[in-house]
Simulated assay, not measured.
Amino acid sequence: MSRVRLRDLGIKIGRFQTGNHNSITDISGVKVGHVTLSYNNEDGHAIRTGVTAILPHADSLFEEKVLGSSYVINGFGKTVGTIQLQELGVIESPIMLTNTLSVPAVLDGTIRYLLRQNPQIGDTTGTVNVIVGECNDGYLNDIRGMHVAPEHAIQAIQNAESGIVEEGCVGAGTGMSCLGYKGGIGTSSRVASFGDNLYTVGALVVSNFGEKKDLRIPGGDFSKGKESKEKMPDGSIMIVLATDAPLNERQLQRLAKRAAFGLSRTGSYASQGSGDIVIAFSTAHRIPHKLPPNQECNTFHLLREDGELISQLFEMAVDTVEEAIWNSICKATTTEGNKGKVKEEVPYEILMGLKGWNN
C-alpha cells in the first residue's frame, strides 16, 4: 500500500484552502528537484542521502534575483549563504538542501552550475552567493563516506519541476528521522483572498528532529513501544517558505519567524543541538543584477502592515509549516540504514488524534 498525505487521512490543518497541489510549487514559477542516493556499497555501508533544489523561478536567478530573508530558530546548523542573504535581502541561486557533511560538495556543484549559466560571474561582475541548508542524516546514512558529489547538486537543479513534489524518503530527506519515526521531505500550501488579489504561501521542509515522546497529538503517550536504545542526535529542520505576496525582505523575515509556531505545534522545542533554520522568499518582484543606464532606483509595491492582511499571511505560514512536517512523516516509508539501524514509518492510526484538534 502506498503512503498517503495527511489530508488523505481526513485531517485538515487550519481554516485556509490549499493550492492545487498543496505544495510550495503552487506559487507560480517555483520548481523543486531531487536526487536520491539509496543503496549499499561494496563495504556494506548504507547510503541513504541526497540533494533537494528549490528554484524560486526558472530563469537566471543571478540576473533576476528575488527578495528573501532567513530566520534562525536555533543556530546549531551549518548553512551557507545566509549571512549575505540577511545583509542584502536577495536570493540569487537555487536554495539547496542536503546532509551536514555534504554542504561543501553541494556548494561546489551549485557554483559550477551557475558559472556555466552566467559566464560574467567572477569576470565582468562579482561572485555569486549560493544558499545551502543541511540536516544530519548520520543515523541512517553513512555520512562519513561523503557520497554526495557536486554533480548531484547539478542534477537536482536540472530535475526541478513545477506541480506535484515527491515527499518522504527522497532527495535531502532520504536519511532523515522525525519524532521517532522516518521523516524527510514534506510540503504544503495555503491560498487566500486579499481584496481583489489572491495570494499563496507554500512551505517545504526537511524534517529531522524529535523523539516519539515529543509528539503533540491528543489521545495517548506515543513514547511506548519499539524505540531505539541508541541515543539519536538532537536533530534539526530546514524550512523554506515561499509566497507570491508582495513582501520586502524585512516583511519576509517576519513571515519566516512564524515558522517556529508551526514547528512547535508538532512537538519540537528546539533542543540544544537542534539546527532549526528558515529561509523565506517572495516571487512578486525580480531584482535585476544590473539596472539600465541612468536608472538608479528599483520601484516596488508592497503589502501594508497596519491591517489584518499581514497577520493572515502569518497564519497561513504557520499552517503550511505544520502540515508540511506531517506530510514529511506521512509519506516516509520504513528505512533500514547504516549498521542495520531502522526508522519505521509512522502508523497512521496514531495521527487520528489530530482530527478535529486543528480544524
Rank of each mutant, 00 (worst) to 15 (best):
E227R: 10
D221R: 07
T79L: 03
G75N: 08
G89S: 13
R15Q: 14
F222A: 08
T243M: 08
R286N: 06
H57C: 06
P94K: 06
G225W: 08
K231C: 03
V201S: 01
V148S: 00
I154A: 01
T333S: 14
P347M: 01
S236A: 15
I217W: 05
T283G: 01
L115S: 04
V132W: 02
L97E: 00
V72Q: 11
H289A: 07
Q117W: 03
K257N: 06
L204A: 04
S23K: 03
V30R: 02
V130P: 02
N197V: 08
T125L: 07
N74L: 12
S268I: 05
N141L: 10
I47Y: 03
Q84V: 12
E64N: 14
H57P: 07
L37D: 05
P293L: 14
E315A: 14
V30H: 04
I237V: 15
V321S: 00
R265Q: 13
V72M: 14
H285E: 07
F62H: 13
D276A: 02
S162P: 07
P288N: 07
D196M: 13
S60C: 09
P233A: 14
S207C: 08
T25N: 07
T100G: 06
K226V: 11
I185T: 12
A53R: 00
N294M: 10
D244H: 08
S264Q: 14
G109E: 09
K65H: 04
E349D: 11
E211H: 12
D214P: 05
H285C: 07
L302E: 13
N197E: 13
T100W: 09
G356W: 11
S28F: 13
K213Q: 09
Y199F: 15
I95N: 01
L9N: 06
E345V: 12
G75S: 12
Y269N: 13
T283I: 02
K226C: 05
G210K: 02
G173Y: 00
D306A: 11
H45S: 05
L215D: 05
E166C: 11
I325G: 00
A260H: 02
E87S: 13
R48V: 13
M316Y: 01
N327S: 09
V106P: 00
V206N: 08
G133T: 05
I237D: 00
G183F: 01
L303Q: 14
G273V: 14
D244I: 11
L252H: 00
L252W: 00
S271T: 13
P233W: 09
M146N: 10
E349A: 04
R265A: 15
V165L: 10
E42T: 13
P288L: 10
S60W: 06
A256S: 01
Y113K: 03
K229M: 05
H45G: 04
H285D: 08
N136V: 05
G50Q: 02
C169W: 04
F62T: 04
G225V: 09
E92V: 06
N99E: 14
I27V: 15
G29D: 10
V132F: 06
T334A: 10
L204V: 12
S69V: 01
R15S: 15
Y139V: 15
K12S: 15
S188Q: 02
D276P: 04
S69C: 03
K31Y: 04
L303S: 10
A317L: 09
T25W: 03
